[in-house]
Design a binder for these strands. Sequence first.
DNA 1: CTATAATTTTAGAATGATTCTAAATTCATA
DNA 2: TATGAATTTAGAATCATTCTAAAATTATAG
Lengths: 154, 154
Amino acid sequence: MNFEVYHNLVEALHKAGYRLTPQRLAICRYLASGREHPTPAAVYARVREQVPTISLATVYNTLALLRQLGLITEMGADASGVRYETDTHPHANLICLQCGRVVDAPLPDLAHVQAVLAAQNAFELRSLRLDAYGLCPDCRRTSMPLATETMSYA
Amino acid sequence: MNFEVYHNLVEALHKAGYRLTPQRLAICRYLASGREHPTPAAVYARVREQVPTISLATVYNTLALLRQLGLITEMGADASGVRYETDTHPHANLICLQCGRVVDAPLPDLAHVQAVLAAQNAFELRSLRLDAYGLCPDCRRTSMPLATETMSYA
DNA sequence: CTATAATTTTAGAATGATTCTAAATTCATA
DNA sequence: TATGAATTTAGAATCATTCTAAAATTATAG
Ligand SMILES: [Mn+2]
Ligand SMILES: [Mn+2]
Ligand SMILES: [Zn+2]
Ligand SMILES: [Zn+2]
């Protein structure tokens, strides 16, 4: 677990006046435990190992709360639902069309891209999302024909 | 309506051996009619004006078919469901956090970005999606506080 | 022009993620 | 310890999407 990330989450909740319940702390611990891009169902499954009585509703509530506070961001939904980002810094996501894995990738000039976009359009930009679809190393090896069904984004 | 786009869609369907039914043609006509990023429900609503007996299932089926053929692409789902792209060329989408409007924006160096990503990672990239969130000109004027509820992506 | 079979459409049922609800629990505070 | 606000919980409700099986359409062969 990344203690710094964990501490950020907990402190932000506390500063915003929310109670640090065992359920919320367990969810934060899980979110700070890796570079995953979990669905609510995945969070529920993993956190339940630590807090067996937690409900799915609380997972949804807490994720929504953390999002309101800007501590996590929501990705678009794939076949198994929404996914959450724990890294709020601008970066690209490499998404495997075969297995659904999401890997973070740094991309130095994202701020530059946003600046160009903002300059050329009347939009007032707040954030950027860059998703790249393809085959992860593992799935590249077991190179199946890549069913056009599998994942819908192209 | 953009006849060139329409013709592309129809011809691709025909070449792939699919029947050019009134329902499919009406959907293609609608898709070629503007730069929208419609949801299946929106397609259904508009096409129904021309083909009142069409079913929602047919809309879903046809959109899935056009996607399989690579003629349209699917965007992530927002509050009202998936949206479809009729422009398959690489471009950025400017998405209004207030009203949900989606506007296409050219971005010259997208190919370059993809090349950099591919070079730095073991992923075999197929496509790129660049979504920028902010306030459209209209919503900027009527500058409400931008409810954190409204749209979830940040 | 029929008959037959494949394709397509359709309405409605089923599914599954997400949200809502109302009651029970926990917690801060007096 | 008593009170009230915040939180959690299980289950119901919602809503987009998918599935199903029957009806309609269309291509093709005789
Ligand atoms: Mn990420
Ligand atoms: Mn677009
Ligand atoms: Zn993979
Ligand atoms: Zn707007």
